[in-house]
Structures are given as structure tokens and as C-alpha cells.
Design a binder for these strands. Sequence first.
DNA 1: CCAAGAAATCTAGCAGTGCTAGATAATCTA
DNA 2: TAGATTATCTAGCACTGCTAGATTTCTTGG
Lengths: 195, 195
Amino acid sequence: MSVQDRRARERQQRERLIVATARELAEAEGWDAVTTRRLAEAIEYSQPVLYSHFSGKDAIVRAVALEGFTQLAATLRDARHVARSPRPALLALARAYLEFAHTRPALYNAMFTLAELPFAQPDTPAPLHQAFAELRQALAPFAPPRNVDTLAEVVWSALHGLATLSRSHRLRPDHAEQRLALLVRTATTSERRSS
Amino acid sequence: MSVQDRRARERQQRERLIVATARELAEAEGWDAVTTRRLAEAIEYSQPVLYSHFSGKDAIVRAVALEGFTQLAATLRDARHVARSPRPALLALARAYLEFAHTRPALYNAMFTLAELPFAQPDTPAPLHQAFAELRQALAPFAPPRNVDTLAEVVWSALHGLATLSRSHRLRPDHAEQRLALLVRTATTSERRSS
DNA sequence: CCAAGAAATCTAGCAGTGCTAGATAATCTA
DNA sequence: TAGATTATCTAGCACTGCTAGATTTCTTGG
């Protein structure tokens, strides 16, 4: 059985190579540059090899997106943990979110517009749930327990909207900090836990 | 000179036909179905005719998007005017925005993810400015004059985020009303004009 | 160590895409 | 009505995602 083990290991490694290469190519030249031919050439295999790992190009994008959610979750966790009190923690998390979207636009795009990954559903992949959980945690001190999820969804929507709209040049570029401050202020003052 | 006038008129009419057909095809079967061939066939002309009106497919999508912003602005204005006091007006506007995005997903997609239309810039097309102005008006009673634009940008981001995330099944489907209520509540209570 | 079987990989091609050069048809002017 | 201008189409290019069938590589029993 050792032969099959080795083969499985090599397959897995090559699969990781495909996903990593797709991500790098997208981050370097945009998703338009990620064609099956270019991707195959970059990993030094022929096109059909891609289809022995993934059902199609969509599935590759989805894999990149999933990887992105793992990274985003880690980024948010780190940001949340540097601050000690709840409000600075939320501010740091929000800032980290927007910076993630801004510095890795291709990856963010895969996560939110290219790939179709169900979220609020039973079969939600773990990384997605985890990223949302970070936001939820950061907001818990500011909402009555029953409403934390709703607040998290709204704040997440706001962050996502800020990220995408500012990316498409639809928000004033020099007011990012004001928007962030306003968002955190409203999210933390309107729904006090004690209410 | 009457001949040229008639020709210009016919050209303009055909251009409108192209844009309308593109929109209808997209709303009926999604943007993937809007290929230059199918579009040409639908307007009963050959492909190159499209390129005598538009520089490429992108420009057609952009025209559809622009038309969409005109409609959105009108929808928001109507919603805002049915209510008499500021808060119900904002609630109605927000609801109308989300309903617009929900009932016309292809059009909304063209407006916000497919087409590249600069916004917060000197050469922003009028319909875009107008749609934003409606939101601005609805929020004016709830923010100090200096911050209206910032508040409008954040609320718009939240609405856009709610629209796109719920469309990709990343928000709990049965909590749309709670999210809307929470958004309006926070937007209207945190930044009182008198502050 | 070698031949047969199995597994992995590649070559070549399909149907579709956006877009365009050059030929053809329709229209207007004199 | 002939010539010039304008409008339109046919045919094709280079690209896309994807796949059937040939080919090579590896594994294993004798």
C-alpha cells in the first residue's frame, strides 16, 4: 500500500501547487490572466491535469477563495487580539479587514464575487464560519446576546460594501478613515448590551 | 441636412434597442447569455453593427448600468417621498434599495460589479450622482452637516453589502427585516444633528 | 531482468468567446 | 441613371474552457 500512499501524497502536493499558482497568477496579473492554459504551463503540466484535480476552473477559484478565508480569519484574529478593550479591538479588526481587501484585491474578489461559496447554510465550510466568528466575537460586547448575529451581519455588510465600493472608486478616496471611525462609532453605541 | 438628421435618429434608436435588448437578455438569462452573437441576433443585425455603436461589450454593459442608475435614483426618490417624517423616509428608501437589488439582480450586477463607472470623481455621470444624492437627502436629518457625506457613504456601503452578501447566500435569509431595522436604527441614532 | 497490465499524462481538437478586415449591398447625389 | 458614399455583412483570427483518444510512464508477476 505504500505506493498508493506516495501517489496520494504527490497528488495532494500537486493540487496545492495548482491552487497556490492560480492565486499568485491572479494576484500578479488579475483573474483574467488565469486561463487554464497559462495555469497549466505555470505548473509545468498539460491542461487535462487540472481537470483530474478539479471539476473545472470554477472549482479552482473556489479553492483559492477558501484558502483566502482561512487567511482572513487568521488576520482578523490577530488584529482583535492586539487590543485589550472591546472598542479598540473592533476598530483594529475592521481596519484589518479593509486592509486585507485593499492589499489583496484579487484574492478578495475570488472570495466574494468570483467563487460561489454558500455561507449561512448547514454545509458552510469551516474557514468561512471562522472568519465570521471573529467578527461576531468582536461585536459581542456591544449588542444584546440575541442580536449579536444580526449586528455582525450588518457590520460585515458595511465592511464588505466599503471594501468593494472604494475599490471601484465610488467613495471619496481621502475619507476612508472617517468612514471607518463612523462605522465603529455607530456599531458600538447604538446597541449597548445593557439595553 | 434632413437626411443626416433622419439617419442620426435611426442610429440613436438602434442604439437604444441594443441597450434595452442587452438588459432584457441579461435579466432573462443572466449576463453569461449576453454574447455579442446572441445580442446581434436578437436585434436582427450582424455582430459588427454593435461595434459601430459601442467600443466593445464592456461599453454596452456600461450603458445598461447607467440606465440602471437612472431607474434606481427614481425608485429611491419615490420611496423617500411616500413617507412624511425623516426616519420612515430613510426606512422606505433602504427597503426600496434592497428590493431593487433583489428583484433585478442582473441589472444591479451590471451597475456594481460588471461595469466600471467612476463615482466619487469629477466626471461622474449624472445618474450616479443623483442616486447618491437621494440617499444623502434621506440621511441629512440625522447627521451634522459636515458629516452627511461620510454617513451616506457608510450607509450606502452597508446597503450594498447587504444586497450582495444576501444574494450570494451569506446572510441568514429569514433575518433580512431585522438587519434592515438595525441598520436604520443605528444610522439614525448615533449621529444626531444636534450633537 | 523483462513483459504485460495499469496508471498517469499528453496531443489534438471541439464549440464557444470578443472582435475586425475586406467584400458586398444599399442609399444618396449629381 | 452612373458614380460615390454609406451602411452592412461574411468570413476569419486568436483566444477561452473543456475532453476523447493516443501515448508514455510506472508497477508488478514471472
